[in-house]
């Protein structure tokens, strides 16, 4: 029992790394995803192709490979680019590289969700907005965006939880610097010292579960706030129907 509490204490700083990775990449990924989703819906063939290709490539390949690819790319540019600029300590640090790749990855998944929601925005609402003489930016801000975010929110919640879970592989692909480790890497490290798989991994799982539930709770509150115009606001289900 004492070992269990020791583990809880040992992993408390580690979970902060997971949370900060997720917290750093969610807002940036969100903004990038809005532009990508609009790009995928755009009628300009170049923008359309590029957004489609980007979303397809990043959804169709494993995050693990993306981590390796971008990290080794940054490494190979080190001597010619980063080092002369004095940036190598920053660019090659997992605290930059991790969120960077996570942003690129989650932007693609989120953009797909937003694109689906964009297509589901009721056509009549847009036509009505146009009939009122709204400009295109007004249409987007007043009609399309509020509809879109309400439609996308349950799936987006799921994506945020997936992103949080994806932070578990950051340090399997990137080097550990200065003993900074997130949950999975800490659990693996502890396992290699005393081979107690039945203690360390379940404790890490407990932390993941706890934070996931907190994310579901917070996003559920936001969902209720978004849906406050409805007579009986629909509750965000703990087990969403959507798959990544």
């Amino acid at each position: 029992m004492q070992a269990f509490f020791d583990d809880l204490a040992l992993m408390a700083p580690a979970v902060m790394f997971n949370i900060s990775f997720a917290a750093a990449s969610i807002p940036l990924g969100f903004v990038l995803a809005v532009f990508l989703a609009l790009g995928k819906a755009s009628s300009n063939p170049i923008i359309n192709r590029l957004s489609r290709g980007y979303i397809y490539a990043f959804r169709g390949s494993p995050l693990f490979i993306q981590f390796f690819m971008f990290y080794s790319l940054a490494l190979s540019l080190n001597v010619t680019v980063w080092k002369p600029m004095g940036w190598s300590g920053f660019v090659l640090h997992p605290l930059f590289m991790g969120p960077f790749v996570l942003v690129l990855n989650t932007a693609a998944y989120t953009a797909e969700i937003f694109y689906g929601a964009l297509r589901a925005v009721p056509r009549g609402a847009i036509e009505a907005a146009r009939a009122y003489g709204m400009s295109r930016s007004q249409q987007f801000r007043r009609v399309i965006w509020p509809n879109l975010i309400r439609l996308a929110w349950p799936a987006y919640t799921n994506e945020v939880v997936f992103l949080f879970h994806a932070t578990a592989i950051v340090y399997f692909a990137l080097p550990v610097i200065g003993g900074q480790r997130e949950l999975m890497s800490t659990a693996q490290n502890l396992f290699e010292t005393d081979y107690n798989a039945f203690l360390h991994f379940p404790v890490a799982a407990l932390y993941f579960l706890a934070v996931s539930l907190v994310i579901f709770f917070i996003f559920g509150l936001i969902y209720q706030r978004l849906m406050r115009h409805l007579p009986s606001p629909p509750r965000l289900r703990y087990i969403p129907k959507w798959l990544r």
Partner: peptide
Amino acid sequence: VRGVPDVL
């Protein structure tokens, strides 16, 4: 399984 990462 939804609350815990697949890697774990």
